[in-house]
Design a protein around this nucleic acid. Sequence first.
DNA 1: AATTATATGATAAACTTTATCATTTATTTT
DNA 2: AAAATAAATGATAAAGTTTATCATATAATT
Lengths: 127, 127
Amino acid sequence: MRFSKQREAVYNVLCQTTSHPDVAWIYARTREIIPNISIATVYRNLQELLSIGKIKKLSAEGYAERYDANVSDHAHLVCSCCGKIVDIDMSQVDVKHSIAGVDRYEITFYGCCDECRNNKDASQNKQ
Amino acid sequence: MRFSKQREAVYNVLCQTTSHPDVAWIYARTREIIPNISIATVYRNLQELLSIGKIKKLSAEGYAERYDANVSDHAHLVCSCCGKIVDIDMSQVDVKHSIAGVDRYEITFYGCCDECRNNKDASQNKQ
DNA sequence: AATTATATGATAAACTTTATCATTTATTTT
DNA sequence: AAAATAAATGATAAAGTTTATCATATAATT
């Protein structure tokens, strides 16, 4: 597979964020680099990058499909306050199971991210 | 909220399967009960049932959004052979974590379901 | 330089989901 | 029971998302 400047741009845009963006965001960003890039090219390259394992797709309930250039084993925390998806290191997670045939798993936590929790605490202290 | 016969039909269709179907499947099935039901009504009722917690929506990487009338705490196994999603009882799963602010999590296992594993074994024994 | 293979941009087509609105159905009030 | 009110529906338009098509462009190979 060739690594065209379009494919490079899509990949770099994803590498430079930890925000797990959707296609619309990725498209907007790559257009800052290659103004006339086609949305079709963005979709195509996301698929290609997925198929060679350079990126991951992640599904959080009710949200549009999002992409992640961090392909290392990690979990996600979906913040119920701000909707942000935060990376969670697997050193913080311990999963044991007795299911036959499993070769991997994805775990998504739902709750309040550090940032929102700090904001809440701060506003409560004021009262 | 009223429980119209359309809402009832959508809910019953979901209750009578463990296949975690998508909207298209649910629509087809409810039309067997109410032939002139509108696709809009199906979407609407899925949203309503979601909002009152009677059903759950689940996201598996790369698949369309699927629905589940089993709202008890359980996990899923997505079969990499046949694509089927199988319910996993939480007694088979033990998750420990040290993440602050978390109130729940969703865990999805990927691998080979019992059925496919049995088929594989059978075909290998023949050789 | 010519040939071959791959990727692209533009856009149409397909598909999914939501919004609109007049009509229908159910509930409440009188 | 009839009238008034509220909620849900069906049909369909609109919006949004993703894939397919194809002529052109770009890169690699011969």
